[in-house]
C-alpha cells in the first residue's frame, strides 16, 4: 500500500471524501482515514473527465479497505475504537464491549479436531489422496492451485476425477481466532455460536475483517463470537494469508511435538 504523499496535487474535495465515507460507514465498514480515500478519488478523477458514480468509488474503496492491514498508518480514521485496556484481562470473568470495534483475523485454530487429525488431513491432501468412507480416492490436482508441485499425472483413474471436490470438506469448528484491532492490540476470540463466514482458509482468508459489535461478550480475556454481535466483512491480507497457509502443517506439527511435553 503506497503511502499517500502529504499533499497530493489534485486534492479531492472534503465534501467528496465525506460523501464516500458516509456511504462506506452506512454499509457497515469502519470509518476510513481521509488519506486512504484521497488516492481513490483523485486517481479516478484524474483519468476520466467525469466524476465516476459513487457506487463504483464505494466498491473500489471497500475492496482496498478489506485488503489492507488495518494497523497500517492512515488506513482507518484515528478515532476508530480499539480494545479497551482490560479486554484481555483473564481476571475479569465477564464484560461487554461498549463500542463497535473493527478487527482483522491473524490466526485461526480448529478446536473441534485434534491437531493430529488436521495434520493427517493436510498430509493426504498433499499426497493427492482423500478418503470417502474407506475408499482411498486419488485427487487430480487443480489446474490452478497446486499443479506445479506435482509431476505429470501418469495414469488417472476416472472414478477419482469426479471425487476431487470432496477434499475441502468444511470443518464445523468451533474455531478460536486471533483478532487484532487498528492499534495492533491482539485478543483471542472463540466462536461461541456458529458464525457462518468464519472458517478455515481457504473458506475464510487470514486478514479477514470483522466488526465486533457493541455488547459483544468477553470472558476472561476471550472474546465470545456469536452471530448477534459479530459482523464478518470478509477480505484478506494477501501476504499474511499466503504465509499462514504455507506454514500451517509445520505449525501444527510443532505444536503437537512440543505440546506433549507441556506440564499443564
Amino acid at each position: 500500500m503506497a503511502q499517500p504523499t502529504p499533499r497530493p496535487t489534485p486534492t479531492a474535495s472534503s465534501a467528496a471524501i465525506q460523501q464516500l465515507t458516509t456511504s462506506l460507514v452506512q454499509s457497515g465498514l469502519p470509518t476510513p482515514h481521509p488519506s486512504f480515500l484521497q488516492p481513490i478519488l483523485s486517481s479516478i478523477s484524474s483519468t476520466s473527465q467525469r466524476t465516476p458514480p459513487l457506487s463504483s468509488l464505494h466498491a473500489t474503496a471497500r475492496l482496498r479497505l478489506l485488503a489492507s492491514d488495518l494497523t497500517g498508518p492512515n488506513i482507518l480514521s484515528p478515532t476508530t475504537p480499539y480494545f479497551p485496556p482490560n479486554t484481555s484481562n483473564v481476571q475479569i470473568p465477564s464484560q461487554t464491549l461498549s463500542t463497535d470495534i473493527p478487527v482483522q483475523v491473524l490466526d485461526i485454530e480448529d478446536l473441534g479436531k485434534s491437531k493430529w487429525e488436521q495434520i493427517e488431513a493436510l498430509e493426504s491432501e498433499r499426497k493427492g489422496e482423500t478418503t470417502k468412507g474407506r475408499e482411498v480416492i486419488r485427487v487430480i490436482p487443480d489446474s490452478s492451485d497446486n499443479a506445479s508441485s506435482l509431476s505429470t499425472p501418469a495414469t488417472q483413474t476416472s472414478a477419482a476425477a469426479n471425487q476431487a471436490s470432496t477434499t475441502n470438506i468444511r470443518s464445523a469448528g468451533p474455531f478460536r481466532l486471533l483478532l487484532q484491532d487498528a492499534r495492533g492490540q491482539k485478543a483471542w476470540g472463540f466462536e461461541l455460536k456458529k458464525v457462518e463466514k468464519l472458517g478455515m482458509p481457504p473458506y475464510m482468508a487470514i486478514g479477514c475483517k470483522v466488526v465486533l459489535k457493541r455488547g459483544c461478550k468477553v470472558a476472561r480475556g476471550m472474546v465470545l463470537l456469536e452471530p448477534a454481535t459479530v459482523v464478518v466483512l470478509g477480505g484478506k491480507i494477501e501476504a499474511l494469508d499466503k504465509v499462514w497457509r504455507e506454514g500451517r502443517e509445520g505449525r501444527l506439527r510443532d505444536a503437537v511435538n512440543t505440546g506433549t511435553g507441556d506440564s499443564g
Binding site: 484481555s88 484481562n89 483473564v90 481476571q91 491473524l106 490466526d107 485454530e109 478446536l111 478460536r176 486471533l178 492490540q185 491482539k186 485478543a187 483471542w188 476472561r220 480475556g221 505449525r251 505444536a255 512440543t258 505440546g259 507441556d262 499443564g264
Partner: peptide, 24 residues
Amino acid sequence: MGPQILEASPAIPTSMLDPVLWAK
C-alpha cells in the same frame, strides 16, 4: 488458577502472545 490455566494452555502458541496483553 484462571490466569495460570490460560497461560499454560498448550494450545496458545506463545509466539502469538503479546506479553503486554497477558501480563496481568
